[in-house]
Design a protein around this nucleic acid. Structure first.
Lengths: 214, 214
DNA sequence: CTAGCATGTTACCTACGGTAACTGGAGTCT
DNA sequence: AGACTCCAGTTACCGTAGGTAACATGCTAG
């Protein structure tokens, strides 16, 4: 039969692909986002052209590699987002899930968040990054959807939700990036501070003596 | 006299440096962040090694180039931050100043915000980026200072201010990046939506029918 | 006139992303 | 069995990038 043979080949190819991705993962974890195709190929015990047959170009490998971690992170975020609890608790759980993830694997985080970006539009080999728009956008859209589904924001709610989705994700990201570098406080404190910000403490704070506040 | 001669040379070198930076600016504006050293040298009418003598390596040139725009942006932000107006107006003015800047010169924005990041710690030529920690950090620290100076946040105010500074800057950045790509609404609407988010509308919003809200 | 110094050049090195062309072995058809 | 077709894998190469060494030129000082 022909189809079983094709299936076998497909399965074998998929297994190989997974092996390659795992090797790539190891190298990226060790060498950071600048890992070279040669290094990855060597770690996998093979040579460059195979990588290119499997993934097209470096962007393709990046996309495949990113998708694994992205999916994992998005799943944990979705879980926190969908937990049966009050809104504030859920926001805190989501922030904490994100921060815990980047704390646990900073190298992976750096790889996902700071990909080498593409060159000028005229350059050769510019098809990189066409797939897998950055993780931040995905998270922003996802959060926007959740907000729009669950909150009553009155007129213009869809646009408002999208702005907020991307804004909140950006807040989480930037604060997390800074926190990961300096570790100025515990994760729990960071979560509380961010949630407080989202909860309007900026508007509610009193002015310092000596002039109007920020 | 010796010192006047040295001064002359110094001045001449500085002028040359400025010329080179202006040429680099033009190229980066035209070719995006991936502009090559060769292209920059060609635009300046000279050859590569001169660039390297002036700036050390590509990171050095990047840093020098970034500093100009960074200073300009920070100044306009400071102006908005220090304007004599109510807090909400000032927040909106600051958001708007940032968004207007990135809207006016998206190429510069991309160059500043998405620099090609450094490779692995073991690689040669890793001294890149030692100078000029990314603009986002600077803005975050600056905003944190303003917040701490002007708001009365009770105990732990310093840490809270820093978290908020970086968080708000990140929110602004991510929302701006997304907005610049999709242009889903006017700048004014975006500013209003973000200010609303900062003003606690997330906490105040009602749940949608059908379950507890986000 | 020569010594020193900054400025500039050409020519080169290394490393990377990416590709073309060949090799070897497994299965298939007659 | 032997020829045919795939397909993973290889070597060897290309173009371009960042970065550097070694040589040329011109100015001012003594």
């Amino acid at each position: 039969m022909e189809s079983t043979q094709q299936n076998d080949q497909q399965r074998s190819a998929d297994r190989r692909r997974r092996e390659l991705l795992e090797a790539a993962d190891r190298v990226v974890l060790r060498d950071g986002p600048g890992a070279s195709m040669n290094a990855i190929a060597a770690e996998a015990g093979i040579t460059k052209p195979i990588l290119y047959r499997h993934f097209g170009d470096k962007g393709g490998l990046y996309a495949a590699l990113a998708k694994r971690h992205t999916d994992a992170l998005l799943n944990s975020l979705r879980a926190a987002l969908d937990a049966p609890a009050e809104r504030r608790e859920r926001v805190e759980a989501t922030l904490d899930a994100y921060l815990a993830a980047i704390e646990a694997r900073p190298q992976v985080y750096r790889f996902l968040m700071h990909p080498a970006d593409a060159g000028s539009p005229g350059d050769p080999g510019f098809d990189v990054g066409k797939h897998s728009l950055p993780l931040l956008r995905l998270m922003g859209e996802e959060l926007a959807q959740v907000i729009e589904d669950r909150l009553d924001l009155g007129p213009g709610s869809q646009q408002l939700a999208r702005v907020w989705g991307h804004g909140i994700v950006g807040m989480m990201h930037a604060a997390g990036d800074w926190w990961l570098g300096e570790r100025p406080c515990s994760r729990a404190e960071l979560v509380r501070s961010l949630a407080d910000l989202l909860w309007g403490r900026l508007a509610a704070a009193g002015d310092r003596i000596g002039g109007p506040g920020f």
